[in-house]
């Protein structure tokens, strides 16, 4: 159901996510001071290697973490076979990478 490498990947992605989530929340609180506008956000993120890297890593860690976590939950609640679990995990990972990747691309490079 959950092999040890997947377990490690989930733990490592959690370790990456913990500071990034705090950073994300901190920036959100800072950014809404004095109103929120698209120009202000894009002014900060567009062509920024730093924000592109931060949110790129964020998306990667989320995709790994959520896909493996969902795999465990589905395995325990519904008990499908290993092949179905693998398929579900890769689909969720790919889906999150695509959606997140598009969003990061839109605010940094587009």
């Amino acid at each position: 159901m959950l092999d040890f490498r997947l377990y490690l990947a989930q733990r490592i992605s959690a370790m990456i996510l913990a500071p990034l989530v705090l950073l994300h929340l901190g920036v959100m609180i800072y950014a809404v001071q004095g109103g929120l506008s698209a120009e202000e956000i894009l002014g900060r993120t567009r062509d920024s290697l730093w924000w592109g890297s931060v949110y790129g890593l964020f998306v990667l860690a989320v995709a790994v973490h959520a896909a493996i976590g969902l795999r465990v939950i589905v395995a325990e609640w519904f008990g499908p076979g290993k092949r179905s679990l693998d398929l579900l995990m890769w689909l969720v990972m790919l889906g999150l990478l695509t959606l997140g990747g598009r969003a990061v691309y839109a605010v940094t490079l587009a």
Partner: peptide
């Protein structure tokens, strides 16, 4: 203990 059903469960 890290095989199927190991400590990671």
């Amino acid at each position: 203990v890290t095989g199927p059903g190991g400590c990671q469960s």
